[in-house]
Simulated scan of single mutants.
Amino acid sequence: MDSSNSVRSHGPGSAPALVPDGPALATGSEFDRDTAVTRREPGVYDAELSAGWTIIQAVNGGYLLALIGRALADALPHPDPFTVSAHYLTPSVPGPAVVRTETVRTGRTLSTGQASLLQYAEDGTEVERIRVLATYGDLDTLSDDIRTSAKPPAIPPREHCLGPADGPAPIAGSTAIMDRLDIRLDPTTLGWAVGAPSGKGEMRGWFGLADGREPDPLSLLLTVDALPPTSFELGLPGWTPTVELTTHVRCRPAPGPLRVAITTRNLAGGFLEEDAEIWDSADRLVAQSRQLARAPRA
């Protein structure tokens, strides 16, 4: 089981709940509480999707990925997500959910599993929201050999970037998740906020959790999907629902704020891609992602 989780009983005969242990538990992080899952039986986990992570009334896809990632960390013999690919089938809503996992393969250094997050229709039947295929390993065992041409994004110092309080009124229904994030955006990617989008399809900024929880591999699954969509800078405000999202976690992030750079190079046929890079305070590329999303209507 993931060393960042512990199993805590809620009384005689109750199922164990997987909750964060160590420093994360000491901070009382809302992210950790809201991504907690309870093991009902091997491979099956109950969860409560929090309304605190919604945007325009739908639960954020990165938050959902982190919750599923916590269940897979318990179900698989390796602790850390290396690659996680998710297909978003139907919009998730706040309320009860169940995560069903299956171990596909286990090896000495890597293990692969799949998981589905389901919720309940009015008649009680299960509705699948997300299906995930993931490979886990141990980030602490990776080689120190790095050969890269990647460079950290050029973002102004955090004090020269802008947060939600510095801009116009938010889109109706979009504020819940913003209360839980500490995001400061590069002013050069904020033309959309003043009615003058650049048309470049870029979004850059500093990222952290509002309660001060330090980043870890699980929270990186949230980070890749937490900034405003690049479609805003393409002049298309509104909901940009994710169709598919693949995240690669490259190393364990150092404490401190993260830098996020997202680009879109091609919007066609009503869909766009978003390529994201996440850099930590030690100037290391700690995560990468690509997602396909449906573009808002003009």
Rank of each mutant, 00 (worst) to 15 (best):
D34N: 03
A36P: 04
A36V: 05
A36W: 07
A36I: 01
V37T: 11
V37L: 04
T38H: 03
R39N: 06
R39I: 09
R40V: 08
E41C: 08
E41K: 14
E41Q: 15
P42A: 14
P42E: 13
G43D: 05
V44N: 05
V44C: 02
V44H: 04
Y45W: 11
Y45T: 09
Y45Q: 10
D46N: 08
D46A: 10
E48N: 11
E48R: 11
L49I: 12
L49W: 02
L49A: 05
S50H: 07
S50Y: 05
A51P: 06
A51R: 04
G52M: 00
G52S: 02
G52K: 04
W53L: 06
W53K: 06
W53D: 03
T54L: 01
I55Y: 07
I56S: 00
Q57I: 12
Q57E: 15
A58Y: 11
A58V: 14
V59C: 00
V59I: 11
G61C: 12
G61H: 08
G61A: 11
Y63W: 14
L64T: 01
L64S: 06
L64I: 08
L64M: 10
L65E: 00
L65A: 12
L65S: 13
A66L: 07
L67A: 00
L67D: 03
I68G: 02
I68V: 12
G69D: 10
G69H: 12
R70D: 00
R70E: 02
R70H: 10
R70L: 06
A71R: 06
A71K: 08
L72E: 04
L72N: 03
L72F: 05
L72V: 02
A73L: 03
D74K: 07
D74Q: 14
A75W: 03
L76H: 07
L76I: 09
L76A: 05
P77C: 01
P79E: 11
P79H: 13
D80P: 15
P81K: 11
P81G: 14
F82D: 07
T83D: 13
T83F: 02
T83C: 10
V84P: 13
V84A: 11
V84Q: 12
A86D: 06
H87I: 15
H87G: 13
H87T: 15
H87S: 15
Y88I: 01
Y88L: 14
L89C: 04
T90C: 03
T90I: 08
T90N: 12
T90M: 13
T90K: 10
T90G: 08
P91V: 12
P91C: 14
P91S: 14
S92K: 00
S92Y: 01
V93A: 15
P94F: 03
G95I: 09
G95V: 09
G95P: 04
P96F: 09
A97L: 04
